[in-house]
């Protein structure tokens, strides 16, 4: 899922630009997953499906209905968020104390969504345009879409960080992520926080889907690689750590670019897998995480 345009054996500034662009996109992809995992304590395996839904909502709104790229982006953001919230209320809330159950249900949901999309839209990727045009930065050709993705990512991440650390709602979120019981004791209603988190995560995933879709086309299975990526980043960064996810995104992004540029370009997509396995085996709590993994 690279989409960057640069020759092999490129120079340092090209590589750096690619890393920044890619990593910020990775961070956006993983952010929603981090939130749900950190606050709700569950792995939402339908995260990739949210990404796909976002991409196709944008496709429908911008291409099929003709409203243009940005309206499509906004629609993806809002609709995917709402859908995710509804999904939480309908299926997840009841079993949110049971992480394995949530994994199974969200996994089955994910494949169901893939099937529906494949059925309705076919197997061929759909073209999704947000912005056209490209620019040259530091020897690397960067499309305007990628720039917007980068800007939006940075904005959302900074915003999220500020929100979590400086607002009341945000602190409530942090509290819930550490202890449901403790949060309840001070009057924070975990369910409302969780709903907020699922809606937010869905919206972020939807936006990520639009960007991914504009780079590589929107297809029914497009959510799979981002899902694996999200695991890696979140496990590497540590649960419940936004800082960790951002750092994790950069680590994975860097490793990916370096692998493809300097080792073997056919090894694309392997990095997140290896990172995930390595982290789980060596340091399951990740870089910044709390020790929830080993008993």
């Amino acid at each position: 899922m690279l989409g960057t345009v640069a020759p092999l054996q490129a120079n340092l500034s090209t590589v750096l630009v690619q890393i920044v662009i890619l990593s910020s996109l990775y961070a956006l992809v993983a952010l929603g997953f981090t939130l749900i995992f950190g606050v709700g304590g569950v792995l939402n395996l339908a995260h990739g499906a949210n990404i796909t839904i976002g991409a196709f909502v944008a496709f429908v709104v911008s291409s099929q209905m003709g409203y243009g790229g940005f309206v499509g982006l906004a629609a993806a953001f809002v609709l995917t968020g709402l859908l995710s919230g509804a999904y939480y209320l309908g299926l997840i809330k009841r079993i949110q104390d049971e992480p394995i159950m949530v994994m199974i249900i969200t996994l089955v949901t994910a494949v169901a969504v893939e099937e529906v999309i494949r059925f309705v839209y076919g197997s061929q990727p759909k073209v999704l345009t947000l912005l056209s045009g490209r620019v040259n930065i530091g020897g690397s050709t960067v499309t305007f879409t990628q720039l917007v993705a980068f800007a939006l990512s940075a904005l959302l991440i900074v915003g999220m960080f500020a929100f979590v650390n400086y607002t009341r709602q945000g602190k409530a979120l942090l509290a819930t992520s550490m202890s449901h019981k403790g949060a309840a004791l001070v009057g924070i209603e975990a369910n409302r926080i969780n709903l907020l988190v699922w809606v937010g995560a869905g919206a972020l995933a939807g936006a990520a889907g639009v960007f991914l879709g504009s780079i590589q086309g929107a297809s029914w299975a497009m959510g799979r690689a981002p899902l694996v990526l999200s695991f890696s980043i979140v496990v590497l960064g540590g649960i419940g750590s936004i800082r960790g996810s951002v750092l994790g995104a950069f680590v994975v992004g860097t490793l990916e670019i370096l692998t493809v540029q300097y080792v073997d370009s056919s090894l694309t997509g392997l990095t997140p897998l290896l990172v995930l396995v390595a982290v789980l085996l060596l340091r399951p709590e990740g870089l910044f995480g709390r020790e929830l993994v080993e008993a």
């Binding site: 695991f231 897998l273 396995v277 399951p284 993994v293 008993a295």
Partner: peptide, 21 residues
């Protein structure tokens, strides 16, 4: 053995992907 619950399942989820790669 060192992992519990979802983390263990995560490893099992990823293993076939690695094999496919």
């Amino acid at each position: 053995l060192r992992l519990r619950g979802p983390y263990l399942s995560l490893v099992t989820l990823v293993a076939p992907l690695i094999l496919l790669q």
